[in-house]
């Protein structure tokens, strides 16, 4: 990248006029803050509603603070409230099984991530660092799969799961995603391509084969991108709705996203339990938000165009 650095050291970040606020810049910052405010407000509103009492919520629709502050919504979502308590605050009192759905989401997203990252890394290594006939063709064909709309393959995949007799099991929810995700292969291949050949040559001289080189040298060297990929795939698997809705709608394997859809369709039309619903959505979003707070930089930096100049 070409940077012309003629001015004082303070212009280390070029383009930026070292802190001199012009009207244009003030306006630009103002726009950015408005955008950020609109981005964050719904998260605040979720929390504010979740901490409100459902029966009096309508009386103070624009109150910035929770209306008649209570933990009741979280308590009834997590199954800690009695039926009477729940009904007193606008809940239905029906059992929610939230912990089951949470467990299902954790299991499903965890399995999918583990499979995609492990198998993806193996394949990426073969595509990036090994020589074998037909390699580039196979890679190209797998990339095409990125462009196929999921519903096109999911209708027949549903029949496959039914034929196998595994509808409403973890296996059905996980299998189509477990073995490969074109993006995972693509992402890691880009990284492996950049690793110096000398390191592999050195390992080869010491008598290590490809399998050993992969597990002992390449994988430990690549923890950074592997973690990033795992985060991205976990978030995606956690948020998936359509496929688990098709094959895993039964209570015992229902994931959080599917469960939220069910809550919503079961709430009475006129007077839904908004605090309960918002508490549930907040808890459903929480794991992903926590991952983001912990690893935000990795996720932000991963968004770009690897491989495209």
């Amino acid at each position: 990248m070409v940077t012309v650095d003629t001015a004082a050291p303070s212009s280390r970040i070029p383009v930026r006029e070292a802190g001199r606020p012009t009207p244009g810049r003030v306006l630009a910052w103002a726009c950015l803050f408005v955008i950020i405010a609109i981005t964050l407000f719904p998260f605040y509103w979720m929390l504010r509603t979740a901490l409100s009492n459902g029966t009096v919520l309508a009386t103070a629709g624009t109150s910035w603070l929770p209306v008649d502050f209570t933990w009741g919504a979280f308590r009834r979502v997590l199954g800690l409230a009695t039926v009477e308590e729940a009904q007193a605050e606008g809940g239905t009192g029906a059992a929610v099984d939230f912990w089951v759905y949470l467990r299902n989401s954790v299991v499903v997203a965890g399995l999918i991530t583990a499979g995609q990252v492990f198998f993806g890394a193996l394949a990426a290594y073969a595509f990036a660092r090994m020589r074998w006939p037909g390699r580039d063709t196979v890679f190209f064909v797998i990339l095409i799969a990125l462009m196929v709309p999921p519903i096109f393959t999911q209708l027949p995949n549903f029949l496959l799961m039914r034929d196998l007799g595994i509808l409403n099991t973890y296996a059905a929810i996980v299998l189509p995603f477990l073995f490969m995700h074109p993006f995972a292969v693509f992402f890691l291949r880009q990284f492996f391509l950049g690793i110096s050949h000398e390191i592999e040559e050195a390992a080869r001289l010491d008598g290590a084969g490809h399998i050993r080189t992969f597990f002992r040298i390449i994988v430990p060297m690549s923890w950074g991108p592997i973690t990033t990929l795992a985060l991205l795939q976990y978030v995606q698997a956690w948020n998936e709705y359509f496929w688990p809705l098709l094959v895993g709608s039964e209570r015992s394997v229902r994931t959080l996203t599917v469960a939220l859809g069910v809550f919503r369709s079961q709430t009475p039309q006129g007077n839904p339990d908004w605090p309960g619903l918002m508490a549930a959505t907040l808890i459903a979003a929480l794991p992903v938000l926590l991952l983001f707070i912990a690893f935000g930089r990795k996720i932000v930096d991963s968004i770009g165009f690897s491989g495209i100049k």
């Binding site: 719904p42 979720m46 996203t257 959505t281 996720i299």
Partner: peptide, 20 residues
């Protein structure tokens, strides 16, 4: 990161929040 945040939350969650 702040600008990206909504993208990390499930469609279903986003839909319900705005529905409310």
């Amino acid at each position: 990161g702040l600008v990206l945040m909504p993208y990390l939350v499930a469609n279903v969650v986003v839909a319900l929040v705005w529905f409310w």
